[in-house]
Design a protein around this nucleic acid. Structure first.
Length: 270
DNA sequence: ATATGCACCTGTGTGC
DNA sequence: TGCACACAGGTGCATA
């Protein structure tokens, strides 16, 4: 579910409450592919201090005091929730964390696509190196240069490619293309330099505006307090098939592009 | 090198 | 009410 604004919202909340904390207990309630070794995983974490919680693309990185990091990917339905009391195991709850100050955190994941993985320093570097630039920390001109190859693929596919730029997913790809007035099916090589720059600016603007609203709750996403993001009502194309375009009144169209639902305005996006 | 297809899972909404 | 099918904020791997 979560894209950059949602993951960054979660990161800020995790960092605020977990930086400096020490793992006291890790209860792996349910194991699965996402936890290669349940008991070893818990043993490795207990006693370790969290230095910070960082984010790269849609990946959360809990930096530990032994040089390792706990990487966490929410994928579609992963969720961290802070709880006050001793948590009771819910249907989709998988891991319960307890920290030295009494803070408790539960990891749940309905579809089980998400994962938590302990990485050493070299593995962490390798994972991070595969991502393209962070859109909110890169100026638009530099971002625009990333939309080059492969030249024949649709521009939307390039936006979703995490090695081109990091953090954009299905919602914000559609929204940025609408803001830039570019049809999602256009081949990368057919975009002018002006259009590439406009698109890079649109990506940055959309992500920043959504982050200010603490993200979009279209389906399952909520933050670590169970609160929904506020950007849903500000979306201009995503999930609005058949409704009027907020810019021109044309009807929003939905197609399938690269297996993903894709929304655009046939009038404003050429 | 790129495109596509599918796989990983569960839940929900739709239409017959 | 049941059933079948499409679809959901993501990625990785196996084929053509």
């Amino acid at each position: 579910m979560p894209e950059l604004p949602e993951v960054e919202t979660v990161r800020r909340q995790l960092h605020a409450r977990l930086a400096g904390r020490v793992f006291r207990d890790v209860s792996v309630w349910k194991t699965g592919r996402e936890f290669p070794a349940g008991v070893a995983f818990a043993d490795a974490l207990c006693g370790r201090r969290i230095l910070s919680v960082d984010r790269r693309a849609k990946l959360l990185l809990w930096r530990l005091d032994d040089g390792r990091s706990l990487s966490a990917h929410l994928k579609m339905t992963g969720r961290f929730t802070f709880t006050e009391a001793d948590p009771a195991e819910g249907r989709h709850d998988r891991i319960a964390f307890a920290f030295d100050d009494g803070t408790r955190l539960v990891w749940a994941d309905i579809r089980k696509f998400g994962f938590l993985r302990l990485l050493d320093a070299a593995e962490t570097d390798a994972v991070l190196a595969a991502y393209g630039p962070e859109p909110l920390e890169t100026d638009a001109a530099a971002l625009a240069e990333r939309f080059a190859s492969p030249a024949k693929r649709a521009i939307k596919a390039a936006l979703l490619d995490q090695s081109v730029l990091a953090g954009v997913g299905n919602i914000y790809a559609d929204e940025a293309l609408h803001r830039a007035g570019i049809r999602p099916t256009r081949a990368v090589r057919r975009l002018s330099a002006t259009e590439r720059l406009r698109l890079a600016e649109a990506v940055r603007a959309i992500l920043a505006e959504s982050l200010a609203q603490r993200g979009t709750s279209a389906n399952d996403y909520v933050d670590t307090d169970g609160e929904r993001g506020g950007f849903l009502g500000l979306l201009r194309v995503y999930g609005r098939e058949g409704e009027p375009c907020r810019s021109c009144g044309g009807l929003i169209k939905r197609i399938v592009l690269g297996r993903r639902g894709t929304h655009f305005c046939p009038v404003c996006q050429r």
